[in-house]
Simulated scan of single mutants.
Amino acid sequence: MLRFSNFLFPESRDPDRDADAIREAMEEALLCEQLGFEVIWLAEHHFDGNCAYVDPVTFAAAILSATKRIKVGFAVAQVSLHHPTRLAEQMSLLDNLSRGRVIVGLGRGTAYNVYEYQGYGIPAEEALERYEEAEGIMLQAWTSSEGMRHEGKHWTLSIPRLRPTPFTKPHPYVIRAASSEAGALHLARRGLPFLMNVQSYETTRDRLLQYRATMLEAGFGPEQVEACLAESWCWRNIFVAETDAEAARIAVPNFIAMQEQRKALRERIYAEQGIIMKKETVPPARVDPAKALIAGSPATVAARMAELEATGIGGVIGSFRLGPMPAELAAQSLRLFMEKVAPQFRAAAPALAAE
């Protein structure tokens, strides 16, 4: 059965209102605990106000300290911007503070916002190789009882045994992001679940069919394939109102405004520096309301959730507060979703198991 979570992705357009946006995000997290969501997912973006709390590690600690049940996941930590030893320590500490309520979502970092790499003094073209090297360091640091040495392209390290040791054995639960078909199939060949970014329903369905086939071709059995799919998540923008018309009236303008805000600094940097990471000649699915937004009455949204459930995906990461949407409207949508949509898919959540 489908599982539900909330992607806490608060926008702050005015630097003087950052504190308000962060407070509202914490209130939304507490509401998610109250309503029974399984996971709160946190993003990581810098310098543009598109993710008001900026640092998901610090914000995760605040949420975990204020809650008792809900898990906190990273979707994702931009690994290429972090020192791997420090990030491994931080995740291990969160794992202990929460007694295993952390989902360590790892990714290379943004494929769009060059200014995030510039602000950290890291060449954007090194992002993928830094991520791959850092992931290996983190997994070894978590699991080595004798300490470790590492000599790589970006880090030369001599790490005594990592402290604190993880609460979850052999290490905190890890999941990887795969924004492309190639990335998803690479994880399928390794027998690993994944986080999928916003895609059209057709792309989601087709990618999961290919994921299944690739796992089977790699020698994994049907039960292993279904177990990986059950732990995989897809991201959708969601808004629920009493009627389809009311949902569209509120959600569509806020969705469009959110997309405009998310590309504003990227385009300014391109105008000033002539640098752009990914030139898009065709608008991608993530910016098209018809493909990337599920807005409607509880019955309409439940029907769209049923479509996703039929693909075999285990969970939905819902972004409920869209761009400049007032917090109270997002809260109403969250309540309607959990009171009238989620009960149609209610099932016991599977236990997290480390890789």
Rank of each mutant, 00 (worst) to 15 (best):
residue 3 R to C: 00
residue 4 F to V: 04
residue 5 S to L: 03
residue 8 L to E: 02
residue 10 P to E: 01
residue 15 P to H: 11
residue 18 D to I: 12
residue 22 I to T: 06
residue 25 A to C: 08
residue 29 A to W: 02
residue 32 C to T: 05
residue 50 N to Y: 15
residue 52 A to R: 01
residue 55 D to V: 00
residue 57 V to Y: 10
residue 59 F to Q: 05
residue 61 A to Q: 12
residue 64 L to H: 07
residue 70 I to V: 14
residue 71 K to T: 09
residue 77 A to K: 00
residue 80 S to F: 03
residue 85 T to P: 00
residue 85 T to Y: 09
residue 86 R to N: 05
residue 88 A to W: 03
residue 104 V to C: 07
residue 108 R to Q: 11
residue 114 V to F: 01
residue 118 Q to A: 07
residue 120 Y to E: 01
residue 123 P to D: 11
residue 125 E to Q: 08
residue 125 E to K: 07
residue 127 A to Y: 00
residue 137 I to V: 14
residue 147 G to L: 02
residue 154 H to Y: 15
residue 155 W to A: 03
residue 155 W to H: 13
residue 155 W to P: 04
residue 158 S to K: 13
residue 159 I to N: 01
residue 162 L to H: 05
residue 163 R to W: 09
residue 165 T to G: 10
residue 170 P to Y: 11
residue 177 A to Y: 03
residue 179 S to M: 12
residue 181 E to F: 07
residue 181 E to S: 13
residue 183 G to S: 11
residue 187 L to S: 05
residue 190 R to K: 15
residue 190 R to F: 05
residue 195 L to I: 14
residue 204 T to N: 12
residue 205 R to C: 06
residue 206 D to G: 08
residue 208 L to N: 04
residue 209 L to R: 14
residue 211 Y to T: 04
residue 211 Y to H: 05
residue 220 F to D: 08
residue 224 Q to T: 14
residue 225 V to W: 00
residue 232 S to K: 10
residue 233 W to T: 06
residue 237 N to E: 10
residue 239 F to W: 03
residue 240 V to K: 10
residue 240 V to P: 11
residue 241 A to L: 01
residue 242 E to L: 01
residue 246 E to G: 10
residue 250 I to V: 15
residue 254 N to S: 12
residue 258 M to T: 02
residue 260 E to P: 00
residue 263 K to E: 15
residue 264 A to C: 02
residue 266 R to M: 15
residue 269 I to Q: 09
residue 272 E to H: 09
residue 274 G to D: 13
residue 280 E to C: 12
residue 281 T to M: 15
residue 283 P to C: 05
residue 291 K to N: 12
residue 297 S to T: 08
residue 300 T to P: 07
residue 301 V to P: 06
residue 304 R to I: 02
residue 304 R to M: 07
residue 306 A to N: 11
residue 310 A to Q: 14
residue 311 T to C: 09
residue 314 G to V: 05
residue 316 V to L: 14
residue 316 V to W: 02
residue 318 G to A: 15
residue 322 L to T: 07
residue 324 P to Y: 05
residue 331 A to L: 05
residue 331 A to D: 10
residue 334 L to Q: 14
residue 340 K to N: 05
residue 340 K to V: 00
residue 340 K to L: 07
residue 341 V to I: 08
residue 342 A to M: 13
residue 344 Q to E: 14
residue 345 F to G: 14
residue 346 R to V: 14
residue 347 A to K: 10
residue 347 A to V: 07
residue 349 A to H: 10
residue 351 A to S: 15
